[in-house]
Amino acid sequence: MNTVLLNLRAIRGRAYPRIVGLIREPSWIFWETVLPLLSISAFIYVYRSLNAPPMYEGFVVLGGVMTTYWLNVLWSMAAQLYWEKETANLQLYLAAPMSKMSILAGMAFGAIISTTLRATTILLLGIFVFHVKFVISSPLLLLLVFVVALLALYGMGMLFASLYLMWGREAWYLNNLFQEPVYFLSGQYFPVKALGTFLAAAASIIPLTLGLDAMRQILFPESIPWGFLNPWIELGILSVLTVIFLVAAKYALDRIEYLGKTKGTLTMRWQ
């Protein structure tokens, strides 16, 4: 059989429940769209309480948009293989002939669709409720940064998915642990340059950091003095990160499958 066709079909197969789930279980709209809007609104009010210029409210909206993807990567990608194991699907995936990366890609594809809907809602909230004004100085660069940042982010999610499978139940807690510190390190609602060069450079391993920094500079030109690096350089680094994460994810998945087969933990639940 044609391997490419097999894997494309596998991606489609795994993305399907994600997309159908959105229609069949609409309660996600409340949990994953309406409620997060509230905390984003709260951060906008924080800046208002500090009499910050309107640009800063835009930082919150942009951070809110990108954070939806980060949360999605953590909860619907990274922790998912572990969950598949717990619900006994993993062994069927492993025994099937397609590449396991296709399963992860299918999950990512389905997840991106739902998350984009949520991110759009946040964007609309920012524009229509909080009157945030974006100035798109370079549409092409913006699109490139957004797409490459997402690829890097979901690549990281794929890598985490493999690692979490090995770590078992710890994965759930690691997800919880990663949330807020990453908000801080990636400069979720503020320019990452404020952290200082060393910390900002270290935090650049998180694709969110450079993605947000570049987009902030493109959408709010007056924030350029707060920019960490030139957006084009950031795009270049993000591209490298994408390749590294995807290759590392593939390696980790193979390695963990091997280790799991050796230790007998691939099909062992509740560990």
Binding site: L6, R9, A10, G13, R14, P17, L92, P97
Partner: peptide
């Protein structure tokens, strides 16, 4: 949340 047919179809995709 998938139907019987959808579940079976999904698994068939993993075999191309």
């Amino acid at each position: 949340l998938l139907t019987v047919f959808e579940n079976l179809w999904m698994f068939s995709q993993f075999y191309g």
